[in-house]
Design a protein around this nucleic acid. Structure first.
Lengths: 343, 343
DNA sequence: CTCGTTACCGGCAACGATTGCATAAAACTA
DNA sequence: TAGTTTTATGCAATCGTTGCCGGTAACGAG
């Protein structure tokens, strides 16, 4: 039927033999236009199925109504749930969501950040990669006038709104839970030293030990990267040492999963020989074998909060308002993997 | 330092006291420009950190280099994995990905489709909602000159490229597996009758029964919607009937999960009393308690294939090439939930 | 009859980048 | 030297939309 030609304001003008300005004003409901003309314009617009071209508007107004999101991996339950929250708020405010992944690589994260900047997104939501010790690319964005809001993995080195969970308390509670269930030889598996969440979760773990007067063993605090084999080796090394822990507390889900695999291979029963607890975002971990005791994060809400803050930044002319950090509560979901130590 | 002003070609021109055309041509490497001028322009461009404004280009060329994606729920492992595949191919071709959700509602799907059309996306990837018996909104898109490629839940009513898995064979294999493990009273839980995947999976199930000369019981083919309570009721009804099945084959993951819950509540052991098999896309289902036998789909590859097809459609001027349907293979991942029936 | 007011509408410019065409100067040819 | 080609650059239109300025009627008041 119709060709691939998108209807413009000009087509309507031509059809009614009036000027484009008049059509524009009629469509926008300007009081300068007679009711008769407005009626005509609206009728024709309806008839030819006119939709305004936001690209033209973006060019004029320097606003794209697009929010950029950069996460490590979309196909990760934590990330996709957060994105769902982002999409929810963005949609309600008339914004669209542009997605990119960093794959835990700083270089990719930087490239994507710049790509988004060149796309003229109105704002950026980001959780930085495991490698991101530098945040200059984010500072660049802000200097260019593109507001940035960070969530989950945030950086102290940059001043802006942030949305995190109470990592400290989550880690503290989980560790206490293990201790109260009779485990006192608890190792902590975690990721990059540079990340704030790593610090906070570590502190929660350390303070829980302290409160219960359990001495800290340095060799039981293990920093891993996301390379599968590396994680396996670290876990295996930990569990083959002479003095081995009888509980593992992981700061991220992947470490829990790897631990489960390694423990199964080594024939160590969970929670019989070694108990497990960790941060997790997959609702399916309830059904795991054994089901996994985990610190759950309000992912959807994180996305919502971050997006609210970002849109506020975008739409408020007044810059330099005080930046806030929203800290959301975690919940401890107690399952079989940390069941009370027999005897 | 720098204000929020994005550097344009005009700024470079002003700085060098030459015209914008010259700058444009120098940047694009036109042979018309003297080496000296080009050198100057490139130096200044570098210095002021110039990035071309794609919005202006989009307006001229009527190409946004943006691909729209509509899925049911982002926070669903199947969808997010497919999106990862989409993003992979899109990124490599210089496209960005705009995401929206239908939440299984036709009305929302339509609204988002139109919103994306008005955003002037270059093409659309979609898996239609459970409710989508009508696909007029997609036909509208194509008439507007925006190519559409469907994946997973596709519709027969529209002619375009499609990417699916061999649902028939996946269902057939899974059902055969249950039968070969000694289960002959197999019920099939599935979703909307209107969807092609429902039909195909049902046919695989039926043919497997047929091959093994097992009579079909109509009341053991149960159509559910995605409302949790409704699903539970259906499963419960099925299992409290006088003649109840001893195996359930679900066409989607959520139905498997619901079944597991209901079975646990009813005190029916899996696979002791009732065996389970179903389609699933969550790698964690390996670790379920009991671990779940499932038909696995190559989600990442689905996203990649669909995107390749779409970009081909976008970039080939010649319309009306023959549309193809790519059918990818599933794999049957045999776990505990379908273990051989004792005795 | 003239002036001012009001209601309504059109034209122009601008947003940033590209491009066909025109044009100036320089270089070359006869 | 006059004419022609080449080289390098500028001008202006374009994409779709809106803000601003200006203009033309019709009308009422004086």
């Amino acid at each position: 039927m119709m060709g691939p030609h998108q209807v413009t304001i000009k087509d309507i003008a031509k059809r009614l033999k009036i000027s484009v300005s008049t059509v524009s004003r009629a469509l926008r409901g300007s009081p300068d236009i007679s009711v008769e003309t407005r009626r005509l314009v609206l009728t024709v617009a309806e008839e030819v199925n006119y939709t305004p071209n936001p690209v033209a508007l973006s060019l004029r107004d320097k606003k794209t109504k697009v929010i950029g999101v950069i996460v490590q991996e979309i196909a990760n339950n934590y990330c996709s749930s957060v994105i769902a929250g982002i999409e929810d708020v963005a949609f309600r405010h008339g914004y669209n969501v542009l997605i990119a992944q960093s794959h835990e690589k700083l270089a990719v994260e930087m490239a994507n950040t710049r790509l988004m900047a060149s796309r003229r997104i109105d704002g950026l939501l980001i959780t930085i990669s495991n490698e991101s010790s530098s945040v200059n690319h984010l500072r660049e964005m802000m200097e260019r006038g593109i507001p940035v809001v960070m969530f989950d993995r945030v950086s102290e080195d940059i001043k802006t709104h942030k949305v995190v969970v109470d990592d400290y308390k989550g880690a503290f509670d989980a560790t206490c839970h293990l201790i109260e269930n009779g485990y006192r030889r608890i190792a902590h598996l975690t990721i990059s030293k540079d990340l704030t969440i790593t610090q906070n979760r570590l502190n929660g773990y350390l303070d829980a030990l302290k409160v219960h007067r359990i001495p800290v063993k340095k060799e039981w605090i293990v920093y891993c990267d996301f390379e599968e084999q590396h994680m396996r080796n670290e876990v295996r090394a930990l569990l083959t040492a002479k003095m081995r822990p009888n509980a593992l507390f992981s700061s991220v889900e992947r470490l829990s999963m790897t631990s489960i695999k390694v423990l199964k291979e080594m024939g160590l029963a969970v929670p019989g020989a070694v108990a497990l607890a960790g941060f997790s975002d997959n609702p399916m971990s309830h059904y795991l074998n054994p089901s996994l005791t985990s610190v759950c994060q309000p992912t959807f809400s994180i996305g919502q909060n971050a997006t609210e803050l970002l849109i506020e930044l975008i739409e408020s002319k007044k810059a330099e308002e005080k930046y806030t950090t929203i800290k959301l509560k975690t919940t401890l979901d107690i399952q079989q993997s940390s069941a009370r130590k027999p005897g």
